[in-house]
Design a protein around this nucleic acid. Structure first.
Length: 333
DNA sequence: ATATCCCGCCAATCG
DNA sequence: CGATTGGCGGGATAT
């Protein structure tokens, strides 16, 4: 039932049936999950405090079948801003996002990459029940970003870890990996709509990737602009500037100016980058301690050893992810 | 050609 | 059973 309403054609329509020819514009973009998720969020009761979301109402409101809404709800659930409240009913909890994300980050720093990989790998094979639940992938995706430099990674990179595949593996394994990536697109798209991540283009790889959005406020943005993004980074030569300004940066966060930027230059191995931190302000006792150590290091003109670097990086990145950072991060080679 | 990823069939699950 | 959830991937659309 409910065919489309996009007609408004003005030309032929003869008895054709549904070939491909003319008529146009079918606009696949407008049907994207990302856009639908954005509209979905706009329909969610904005005021804090829990409220109810009715799938059927939402479906008719957005003029879409329920199937797609499940994709969105699943992600929102794993992000913590919604919980099942019964048949066709969900409770909207925008205030819980930050809490859930913090938890995921904590876990991310606890386990190793291999552990993460094994988990999903375990899904495969086990009878015939190989499954990539959107929720699981969503959590893994988020945790993975937390362990990547600048909280950025391409979906292929995510798949390489979550679903490692051998060189001479059988076709079915590669097919599974492909399927994994397809799902990751779904996850990334709704996370983009929520504002947790943003699509960017890796400076070195030049390939599309997704990056964690710093300082996500407590509630999801009433996405309306988060539509697609236009990263575009033409130049190839870092040039003298060497200050490849932070690509995105939507807007200056509210009140407290969480001045914190990561300047990256030169292709570094896909590991944690070497860096020097320059303290400028400090009001957070926790990060203050971290910065002190780094500052000391700087005066000595020496670099911390690898293990220490990792710790420093993560601590600083952690603050960045939270939007509580009050220092400038400078990455050097 | 390659990167994205919409659409909806149909299998679990629920009630 | 029918209805609700939600894997999965064919193949169309965007670049």
């Amino acid at each position: 039932m409910e065919s489309q309403a996009d007609n408004c054609l003005k030309s032929t329509s003869i008895l054709d049936s549904m070939s491909e020819v003319n008529l146009t514009a079918y606009k696949r973009k407008e049907k994207s999950l990302a856009l639908l998720a954005a509209r979905f969020l706009r329909c969610c009761p904005s005021p804090s405090g829990d409220s109810v979301i009715d799938l059927n109402a939402m479906a008719s409101e957005l003029g879409v079948g329920r199937r797609r809404l499940y994709d969105i709800i699943n992600i929102l659930e794993t992000i913590g801003c919604a919980t099942r409240a019964g048949k066709n009913k969900y409770t909207w909890k925008p205030d819980k996002i930050k809490q859930k994300l913090s938890r995921l980050r904590h876990v991310a720093y606890q386990q190793s990459r291999t552990e993460a990989g094994e988990m999903l790998a375990g899904y495969l094979r086990d009878g015939t029940r190989r499954s990539f639940s959107l929720g699981q992938l969503c959590e893994r995706f988020i945790m993975f970003l937390h362990t990547e430099p600048e909280g950025m990674a391409s979906l292929e990179a995510v798949a390489d870890t979550l679903f490692p595949v051998q060189e001479g593996s059988d076709p079915s394994t590669w097919q599974a990996r492909k399927s994994c990536i397809r799902r990751l697109y779904d996850v990334a798209n709704v996370l983009t709509a929520v504002g947790v991540v943003q699509k960017v283009h890796s400076l070195q790889t030049r390939r599309p990737a997704f990056q964690w959005v710093p300082a996500l406020q407590d509630r999801p943005r009433t996405a309306s602009d988060c539509i697609d993004s236009a990263p575009l980074d033409r130049s190839e030569a870092p040039g003298p500037a060497a200050l490849a300004a932070p690509n995105r940066t939507a807007k200056p966060s509210i009140g407290s100016g969480s001045a914190f930027q990561i300047l990256n230059r030169g292709g570094r191995p896909a590991v944690l980058p070497t860096m020097i931190v320059k303290p400028t302000v400090h009001d957070n006792s926790h990060s203050q301690r971290i910065m002190a150590a780094v500052d000391d290091n700087e005066q000595r003109g020496t670099l911390l050893n690898d293990s220490q670097l990792v710790v420093e990086y993560r601590s600083a990145l952690s603050a960045w992810m939270d939007g509580t950072a009050t220092h400038v991060l400078r990455v050097e080679d």
